[in-house]
Write a protein that binds this DNA or RNA. Structure first.
Length: 918
RNA sequence: GCUCCGGUGGUGGAAUGGUAGACACGAAGGACUUAAAAUCCUUUGGCCAUUUUCGGCUGUGCGGGUUCAAGUCCCGCCCGGAGUACCA
């Protein structure tokens, strides 16, 4: 019987669905394992062949773990709120809910064809009210909590109020927007509005006036990770800075824990590094510089506060720089400089964020006419204003040390300011930024190494009371409002004077109302403002809201009294393996960790980190094919002959090209203008196409649909081929050439197992089998699926040669291959191998490697002289190195190859190699 | 600019410091077939031998180094990709 993949795959996909083969429940008798894929945003374009790559890898791992005896949770769902559906709605008038539903249906059909072991009973959709109820709930919890920096966890806002009532801000340890100081008496005297404003400064979900990334093209605010190069990630529209009142999440309160938590995670170093950089911890000191002409202490005192990580360089400070937005500028600017400063401020205001980013090398600035006084030596230091200092980081002011900071150096050079080195070095061509060397001209620090000087200086600053040690993070609070329709509504209304009022938890979810028009209102308010009688917040939550806790919901997806029950959470705990793209490094993967830690603080989840191990699958690029048209004609010349003509390169649909050879008839039928195409062929009569690696996109005609592969080769071939393509983490072009090799493997496997009998297995066959078990198991554990597939091929080549029919060999082989090619394995398991229908191969015990077959009794050693292989000899493995040495010395070949030179040394690595040094 | 990751045949890619190029594609030749498909066999890094294919040289971006032995480790370059962007 032939390998009829179509029939086999149809049959088993249907039976798995009917039998609920992949349904999982809590089972205390077995250890759990949670394998999660990043759920997709269901776009209108459907899946291309690159999308399932990670899903296939995780599915193989899930099936492997299941066969190993784990109770595996492997769910799937949809990240269904988002901008594209809404943009589409604006263009076509189709409601996002309708297109989203259609897209999900299409996704599901495509996914189902690939034979995944998802438990679809646990499907979640972020746009489902039963789901977003818990997104809104979490928001309300964040609103109701603040972060206690002493206890290092979130606490109810009521505790904060109690503290204020008792002691004001005295002895307070709380993460906040700005430092506030008031007494208990003052608190008692505050109005409701004033108290609400004070509390807002501490809530973990809070409102604030903040500079936001405003995207006019999308009509909404975007988070930092949704903006790249000054353009929106979705749509590529320009983004500008604008001051707006927004909801935010106080992610910064968790900065240190987000950073520390990385250490214990089995994530790739590069991913951790991206998160570390994004959090951007820097340890330094804030220091106060007196300003000439202003009091340094007492009533009306003016001090310039700066942040620096290089306090040791304070004797090299030759000027100070303020950000153009710095509040002190107006007060300290000397009358003579006022005009110039104002002109500069006006000019920088005009320059957009994009322009500032575009020419970071341009040096600009203006002198204020004011001077700061170096608290260590009393030297007067001119204060400048420049846009290379950012208002949003540190204190918006720096002490400039041009000798040891490249930006300060460039500034000093441009404005001809002095450059004073305090470490022995040459600063004529550039600054010396390295944190090493011995200090000079630095008073009490002179002679110290930089590494000693930094802590010494911190101590001195604190001793003199002119500043203190301080840790700064680059991480910003996450802006949580979007001026859009297709997202979770905020369950918040406002009193007449603007105090937020939460919808009681019992009344959640607050349903997203229907609208007809998805565009902003004429006065620029979000679409929800169009809804009559909508008494709630009109912005909606961002995309990351719904994806921040979905992994918890899968544990208990139908629970309508809690996000996840304690029982379910105690059993499933957190995600053991998370597979997805690295593009979420600074978005979803930060927000989820924050969200989880918050819920952990409140006792709703039992693990501090959501994703224990994380694998980033690479992106699959397109491999485009080209034909070469002779300019101005309808004649096409083959690749190797194209240089003889004046040609034009045209993308051709990769689906009508096989192994770079064009299907001429298919080409003529492809598009009407090629109906009468003529071809200049290679001498062997073929038309060869050129190729290039590009992004997979419709316009390049290089999109390969997984359905097409499944129809022509089967899901098992697709699964194995995607794995065979290369290391999972690596980005690589899709190339359908080569798929025949994997398909051939499955056909041979079919033919071999079909003839299974109860014949005995030879030692050689068992050896091959057990080596393969070992190799494949190790490879799966290491996520090296490409080499695992190779191991299968090597194994089959050998078994095929020996025409094995032994059940003892073939049955374990089928169980071993089942995670990769579940359909064929299932069919063989029941058909040729005769297992009853009730025993799915999914639960076949994973084959155990018998170590006895792995050991060798003898080994063919290559014998080398001075590193070059000269001959091979077989030695007994039980021989000791010295016995081997003796044997070699006695060998007549040895004499021949040494040319009479004496043997100095014989190096024997058991099982590997022998090298003779002459 | 900084950080990280890479650079191996015509192609995708294998190689705990130990016979580089596994496995697969493609290509060439052959068997079977009326023919095609399918299947199977042989060859396939380069150069040079070939008076018996079971031999020689060379070879993992470039230049050095460590080692009996380097694709692998160290130093310095070159090239490509990703992240980040005035973060003090």
């Amino acid at each position: 019987m032939e390998y009829d993949f179509k029939e086999i795959e149809r049959k088993w996909q249907q039976r798995w669905a009917e039998a609920g083969t992949y349904h999982v429940e809590i089972d205390a008798s077995r250890p759990k394992y949670y394998v999660l894929d990043m759920f997709p945003y269901p776009s209108g374009a459907g899946l291309h062949v690159g999308h399932p790559l990670g899903y296939i890898a995780s599915d193989i791992y899930s099936r492997y773990k299941r066969q190993k005896g784990f109770n595996v949770l492997h769910p799937m769902g949809y990240d269904a709120f988002g901008l594209p559906a809404e943009q589409y709605a604006i263009q076509t008038g189709q409601h996002p809910a309708v297109t989203t539903e259609q897209n999900i249906k299409r996704y599901r059909e495509q996914l189902d064809k690939i034979g995944f072991s998802f438990d679809w009973d646990r499907e979640v959709r972020t746009c489902d009210p039963g789901y977003y109820r818990w997104t809104q709930w979490a928001f309300e919890q964040m609103y109701g909590h603040y972060y206690d920096t002493a206890a290092d966890r979130a606490k109810p806002i009521a505790e904060l109020e109690a503290h204020f009532a008792q002691r004001g801000t005295e002895g307070l340890h709380a993460a906040c927007g700005k430092e506030l100081h008031f007494t208990a008496a003052e608190w008692a005297a505050y109005s409701d509005k004033e108290r609400a404003d004070v509390l807002m400064n501490y809530r973990l979900a809070f409102q604030a006036d903040t500079m936001v990334n405003w995207c006019e093209g999308l009509g909404t605010v975007l988070a930092n990770d949704e903006v790249k190069d000054g353009l929106s990630v979705r749509g590529g529209f320009p983004v500008e800075q604008k001051r707006m009142r927004q909801w935010l999440l106080r992610v910064t309160a968790y900065a240190e824990r987000l950073l520390q938590g990385l250490d214990g995670l089995a994530w790739s170093e590069s991913l951790k590094e991206i998160q570390r950089n994004w959090i951007g911890k820097s340890t330094g000191a804030t220091m106060f510089f007196p300003i000439k002409g202003f009091a340094a202490a007492g009533e009306g005192a003016k001090l310039l506060e700066i942040f620096t990580t290089r306090a040791d360089t304070v004797f090299g400070v030759t000027f100070m720089v303020l950000a153009p937005e710095h509040p002190l500028i107006g007060e300290i600017t000397a009358p003579a400089q006022r005009e110039a400063v104002e002109a500069y401020l006006a000019e920088t205001k005009k320059r957009s964020e994009r322009e500032r980013m575009a020419d970071t090398k341009r040096v600009s600035g203006v002198f204020t006419g004011a001077y700061a006084i170096n608290p260590f030596n009393g030297v007067e230091i001119p204060i400048w204003v420049s846009d290379y200092v950012l208002a949003g980081y540190g204190t918006g002011a720096i002490m400039a040390v041009p000798a040891h900071d490249s930006r300060d150096w460039a500034f000093a050079r441009h404005f001809d300011l002095p450059i004073v080195p305090i470490i022995e070095c040459d600063v004529s061509e550039g600054s010396y930024d390295a944190k090493e060397g011995r200090l000079i001209n630095s008073d009490f620090l002179t002679g110290l190494d930089v590494k000693e000087a930094i802590p010494a200086m911190f101590a001195e600053i604190e001793r003199r009371g002119i500043g203190h040690k301080k840790v700064n993070y680059r991480l910003r609070d996450a802006i949580f409002s979007r001026q859009r329709y297709w997202g979770e509504p905020f369950p918040v209304s406002y009193t007449a004077d603007g105090i937020p009022v939460l919808l009681p938890e019992s009344e959640l979810p607050l349903l997203l109302p229907e609208v007809q028009d998805f565009t902003p209102t004429a006065d620029g308010r979000p679409p929800l403002a169009r809804v009559d009688g909508w008494g709630y917040e009109t912005s909606t939550m961002p995309g990351f809201a719904g994806s921040s806790a979905y992994y918890l919901r899968y544990m208990d997806p139908k629970n309508d009294t809690a996000l996840v029950s304690k029982t379910a959470n105690d059993y499933w705990r957190n995600v053991d393996l998370y597979v997805g793209g690295i593009e979420h490094a600074t978005g979803h993967l930060i927000y989820s960790r924050f969200w989880n830690k918050f819920l952990y603080d409140l006792g709703y989840v039992c693990e501090d980190e959501p994703f224990q191990k994380l694998v980033n699958q690479g992106m699959i690029q397109g491999r485009s094919n080209f034909v070469y048209r002779i300019k101005g004609t309808n004649r096409f010349v083959s690749f190797n002959l194209k240089d003889q003509y004046d040609t034009q390169e045209i993308h051709v649909d990769v689906n009508i090209v096989k192994n770079d050879v064009l299907d001429l008839d298919a080409f003529r039928a492809w598009r009407p203008e090629f109906k009468d195409a003529e071809f200049i062929l290679e001498p062997d009569g073929r038309y060869v196409c050129g190729w290039a690696v590009e992004k997979m996109s419709k316009s390049m005609y290089n999109v390969v649909n997984p359905d097409f592969i499944v129809d022509n080769y089967g899901a098992d071939t697709l699964r194995m081929y995607e794995m065979f393509l290369g290391p999972i983490e690596q980005s690589k072009p899709w190339d359908t050439n080569g798929i025949d090799g994997v398909h051939k493997f499955l056909k041979r496997l079919w033919r071999l197992v079909e003839n299974v009998g109860d014949t005995p297995a030879t030692d050689a066959e068992l050896k091959v089998l057990h080596k393969t078990i070992k190799k494949v198991s190790d490879d799966i554990e290491n996520f090296s699926f490409n080499t695992a597939v190779s191991a299968f091929m090597i194994c089959l080549n050998e078994l095929y040669d020996s025409k094995t029919t032994a059940r003892l060999v073939l049955e374990p082989l089928v169980a071993l291959v089942a995670p990769f090619a579940p359909h064929i394995a299932e069919e063989l398991w029941h058909g040729a191998l005769g297992h009853p229908e009730t025993e799915s191969v999914c639960d076949a015990p994973y084959p155990v490697c018998d170590e006895r077959y792995l050991t060798e009794s003898s080994f063919e050693y290559p014998v080398s002289f001075n590193g070059k292989t000269r001959f091979k000899r077989t030695f007994d493995l039980s021989m000791t190195p010295s016995q081997i040495t003796e044997a070699i010395a006695a060998d007549e070949q040895t004499a021949k190859y040494t040319d009479g030179r004496a043997i100095k040394k014989v190096i024997v690595v058991p099982g590997k190699i022998i090298n003779i040094v002459c």
